[in-house]
């Protein structure tokens, strides 16, 4: 799952740094991800994992790190 998350971040996160250099707990917004980029990341995650993020999960903290995204996807997929 982590590798897929990182691939999506690399493609849609518009990060100014290499995703490989970002730690699991590193803050993606501090690394340069914008709110608009986080929408693209969300939509790409929905496509890849066949899920839909409900409104209550549309908070900055849901997409603030690789680890946070993994936890959110775990909740949505039940894994």
């Amino acid at each position: 799952m982590d590798e897929t998350i990182r691939t999506i971040l690399a493609e849609h996160g518009h990060l100014p740094v290499e995703v490989a250099k970002i730690g699991d707990e590193d803050d993606l917004y501090q690394a340069g991800m914008t709110s608009h980029a986080s929408v693209n990341v969300m939509l790409a995650l929905e496509d890849e994992f066949d899920v839909e993020f409900p409104e209550v999960m549309l908070r900055k903290s849901t997409f603030e790190s690789v680890a946070a995204i993994r936890v959110a996807l775990g909740e949505l997929t039940g894994s």
């Binding site: 518009h14 914008t34 709110s35 608009h36 980029a37 929408v39 693209n40 939509l43």
Partner: peptide, 24 residues
């Protein structure tokens, strides 16, 4: 205040189409 890069929005429209428009 906020700024957004226009080309990134154009990419989103092209990549995600109506789903991007309808969610945002």
């Amino acid at each position: 205040t906020d700024v957004v890069a226009v080309h990134q929005v154009a990419e989103s429209v092209e990549r995600f189409g109506p789903r991007y428009l309808q969610r945002v």
